[in-house]
Nucleic acid binder design. Structure first.
Length: 878
RNA sequence: GCCCCUGUGGCGGAAUGGUAGACGCGGCAGACUCAAAAUCUGUUGGUGGCAACACCGUGCUGGUUCGAGUCCGGCCAGGGGCACCA
């Protein structure tokens, strides 16, 4: 953007020196300067290499919290660093703005969800802007804006056309508190992920996305996501849950229809002791018709459902139907058929065969119902007993008691059984996934309307694209239970786009995870008239670095990967994976406080006295200090970022977030640490302020010669630049911070300050300070700007290139080697870097004569061997 | 139960198989000050010793190696994920 010369720089010329750095003044000044220059615009037509860095966008809950501060600080360091390295950086921000809390606020406070959301966005945008983030605000999006959800509706229609979205009657997870449906991923320990209420099963007609169509690809592509944390990939792998198995058909005596079961252990077929079907299996329903006991058993299974009790009551129970099934390979062998409470209708065929010897659950069941236990896999370890006790054998081994399988290994036997079953028409190999299709219907108001119409004559009819968006009605009511769209007197009445007759709008809205499944693509062309503009998306995507919390390892990240595949299938983009690299930052924690009555207290209500006893600030009563936990409203252990920025400024908050803890680990917020960060910001300013006047002018040519002192300073500068650059590349921000501390400490050391005396020293010192200002710029940008200006520059440091370093200067010429005797350190010697091994050996042995510690350790014993590690260590073995 | 991660001073944490504890916080001592705050200087793993120095020390326990916080085996503890998935 133009206007560099007439920016705020010219208007606000600070005094030549200020004793104390005033964050409130400086931060406002520089934020205005950046905004005026459009310093952070990502430009579609810029020929420089593009770099898209993205942090997970926030839900506009009201205020930002420390977790946001950490997340966005990390992202900002990356964005600013890459910009300085010459990349054309895209670093946008938006709002995950649909969702239930807005409706709750409407119900509780009588404020419309839209108004509540937009107010929160305004507040939080202001808070984020106060952090001084290098965000391209011109690309801001909010998912609740019709300009966003209109395009999402178009994508939905494309998915519908491609068969990726469909409707089916299904048992769904019903959250009785939120009065809505949840996806499997959103049910945690049988409870709703948001409400925490035990989830019920209900049968409803629902919209689904066929994520399972991509199950195999979603799984195998994980291997190529090398810059994702391994644990996220493991979690997704577990969630997708691929299993290779086999369907096996059993003849049931007295029936024509065979019973089909699914197994991953076809090799253990000769160890089968029973069959078991789910309570929801058609066979169970049929048996129940004429069997009152079966009916009551099935009813019992249903009453447990998937609620909490069912999970805790892990007891395996069954009901013997009296039916007998014939073994597929042994016509005269028969096993009983049970209805069992632990068999799931949704997985495989809803029926299993039980092999007690080699499956713990089957063994428990067999012991309870006194069924035979026949071992068919011999233990791999010959000293192990053959007898099966209370523990099933699930290890490898060779088949026994198994007819034609005897002597085969487990994999061989699996193969053989599958082959014979297929040949006999009694079964076939099958690939199964734990992953289910993604249920996206929500019976809520504050979400993206699903753009279809239900017509009594034509069925489900898509809304024509020219009629998009299907807008939410503004005049919904939130004071009654159920779906406000359903309750609205007129909104759902419409005409069929196809036959023009009376029809009804779909009143379900989309799961808000749909909104966040493609926002990263919309940022590339946020105002385009199509959802995704191919040209710009192809230029920017994939996101080079994505940063967010580990809590989205399965939900959001899996959905976004699915959506990318769906968008590719519908021609919106040509991308394999949305996020090339993922970084998951740790949580921000704080100590917890309780008063005498066990009531949680805010940290701001507690003061620690000189005696180390924590007390309530007002009542003076003692307070119990608990362990550090993730900041949460319920524990009240929250620190408001706004209050911290008021007190210390944004740079202090940012510096604290980066120092001490590695970014992937949890960070504990402490007052002492924040105060320490503030002291550093002040100290840094003093360094620049006190040095500036004695320096040569900016851009003074380098002197021809450097004295020893100046040369030493230059070595330090170049080495620091090299190290900090390497640390930032590797996300080792805490180590980069430590290097900067060392650098600053040395520059403040009066002994080193003496080097600034001569012309060469002054030049070296300016070089050091200019490097320093640029090194800290990604982390504490306001202080860096202030320092840069104090050094006499009229440009802004944000526009400066990242400092280069001279390999030759960064190299040390003297190395201090440890001298070990039998691996124990006994002394040190100084050598020229790169000194040949023989010379080092000679020197070390000579020193061994004169250095008491080494001599004593040797005690005149014969030297067996001397090991020299270049520039590191010498080990004398005696 | 299965899978993954993490265990280092009073605390957060450094350390390509090569001088363990960088850097920060906290503590202690001192300077400045009428005093305090701020700032600055020194010191700070443990034990013994006036000291030089010695010994011990990265959850425990074996091993590989001239040398292990780091690699390998077995255990223990904490955290996270998955879990009637046949």
């Amino acid at each position: 953007m133009a206007g560099c010369e007439r920016g705020p720089l010219g208007r606000h010329r600070p005094p030549a020196s200020m004793a104390r750095y005033e964050p409130a003044v400086a931060e406002r000044k520089w934020q205005a300067a950046w905004a005026q220059r459009g310093a952070f615009a990502g430009r579609d037509d810029d020929p420089r290499p593009k770099y898209y860095v993205l942090e997970m966008f926030p839900y506009p809950s009201g205020r930002i919290h420390m977790g946001h501060v950490r997340n966005y600080t990390l992202g900002d360091v990356v964005a600013r660093y890459k910009r300085a390295k010459g990349f054309n950086v895209l670093h946008p921000m938006g709002w995950d703005a649909f969702g239930l809390p807005a409706e709750n606020a409407a119900r509780d406070k009588g404020i419309h969800p839209k108004e509540w959301t937009l107010n929160n966005i305004a507040t939080m945008r202001g808070e984020l802007q106060r952090m001084g983030l290098s965000i391209d605000w011109s690309r801001e999006i909010a998912t609740c804006h019709p300009g966003y959800y209109a395009h999402q509706q178009k994508l939905f229609l494309d998915f519908l056309k491609a068969g990726l979205a469909y409707r089916k009657k299904a048992k769904v997870n019903w959250d009785p508190i939120d009065q809505t449906v949840l996806a499997n991923e959103q049910v945690i320990d049988g409870k709703g992920w948001r409400s925490g209420a035990p989830v019920e099963k209900r049968e409803l007609e629902q919209w689904f996305f066929s994520i399972t169509r991509f199950a195999e690809d979603l799984l195998s592509a994980l291997d190529r996501l090398e810059n994702w944390p391994e644990r996220v990939r493991v979690m997704q792998r577990n969630w997708i849950g691929r299993s290779e198995g086999c369907r096996v058909q059993w003849d049931v005596l007295g029936r024509t229809q065979r019973l089909e079961v699914y197994t991953t252990r076809p090799d253990t077929l000769f160890g089968a002791a029973f069959l078991a079907v789910s309570a929801d299996h058609p066979l169970a329903t049929e048996v129940a018709k004429n069997d009152a006991n079966a009916r009551s058993f099935i009813a019992e299974c249903h009453s447990l459902g998937t609620s909490e009790e069912a999970i805790e009551a892990a007891e395996k129970r069954g009901y013997d139907t009296g039916l007998r099934a014939r073994h597929p390979f042994r016509a005269n062998e028969q096993v009983p058929v049970f209805i069992a409470n632990f068999v799931l209708m949704e997985y495989g065929t809803g029926a299993i065969f039980g092999c007690p010897a080699h499956d713990q659950r089957d063994l428990d069941f067999a012991r309870k119902y006194r069924l035979p236990v026949r071992r068919v896999v011999a233990p791999a370890n010959p000293s192990e007993p053959i007898e099966i006790g209370d523990v099933a054998y699930t290890g490898d081994g060779v088949l026994m008691n198994s007819d034609f399988l005897n002597g085969m290994t487990v994999p061989q036997a699996k193969n053989e059984v599958a082959m014979r079953l297929e040949r006999a028409g009694r079964g076939k190999r099958e690939l199964n996934f734990r992953l289910r299709d993604w249920g996206v219907s929500r019976q809520r108001y504050w979400g993206c309307p699903i753009p279809v119409v239900h017509c009594p004559r034509c069925g489900v009819v898509p809304v024509p694209e020219k009629d998009l968006p299907v807008r939410l009605p503004e005049d919904a009511r939130f004071d009654q239970s159920g779906n406000p769209l359903e309750n609205h007197p007129t909104w759902k009445d419409t005409s069929c786009p196809s036959c023009k007759g009376k029809a009804r709008r779909e009143t379900d809205t989309l799961d808000t995870f749909v909104d966040s499944s493609w926002y990263f693509a919309r940022f590339c062309s946020p105002r385009a008239s199509v959802p995704i503009e191919r040209k710009t998306v192809d230029a920017w995507l994939p996101v080079k670095q994505y940063i967010g919390g580990i809590e989205h390892a399965v939900l959001h990240l899996l959905y976004a990967r699915f959506f990318t595949r769906g968008l590719r299938a519908t021609g919106h983009l040509s991308l394999d994976e949305p996020f090339e690299a993922l970084f998951t930052q740790g949580m921000v924690g704080h100590q917890t406080y309780k008063d005498e009555h066990g009531k949680w207290l805010f940290p701001s209500e507690v003061a620690v006295g000189d005696d180390g006893q924590a007390r309530h600030k007002e009542t003076g009563r003692p307070v119990t200090v608990g362990r550090s936990e993730k900041m949460s409203k319920s524990l009240k252990n929250v620190v408001d970022p706004g209050a911290i920025i008021d007190k210390y400024g944004a740079d202090t908050a940012r510096w604290f977030m980066l120092s001490d803890s590695p970014p992937e680990r949890d960070l504990e917020w402490t007052d002492a640490g924040a105060a320490g960060a503030f002291r550093f910001v002040q100290r840094l300013w003093r360094l620049f302020d006190e040095s500036a006047n004695a320096l040569p002018r900016p851009r003074t040519p380098a002197p021809k010669q450097f004295g020893a002192e100046a040369a030493r300073m230059r070595t330090l500068t170049h080495r620091t630049v090299a190290k900090v650059s390497a640390d930032l590349e590797r996300f080792r921000f805490n180590v980069a911070v430590a290097r900067i501390y060392e650098f600053v400490n040395t520059l403040l050391d009066p002994a080193v300050g003496g080097a600034a005396k001569g012309a060469d020293g002054g030049w070296a010192r300016r070089e050091a300070l200019e490097a320093l200002a640029r090194l800290v710029a990604p982390m504490i940008p306001h202080s860096a700007e202030e320092a840069w200006q104090r050094l006499g520059h009229t440009s802004i440091v944000t526009d400066e290139a990242w400092p280069a370093f001279d390999e030759a200067l960064a190299r040390e010429d003297v190395a201090t080697l440890g001298v070990q005797v039998n691996g124990k350190l006994r002394g040190t010697i100084e050598v020229a870097v790169g000194m040949p091994e023989a010379e080092v050996r000679a020197l070390a042995l000579k020193e061994a004569e004169s250095q008491e510690r080494i001599k004593n350790a040797l005690e005149g014993k014969p030297i067996r061997k001397v090991i020299v590690v270049q520039d590191r260590v010498v080990n004398i073995v005696v």
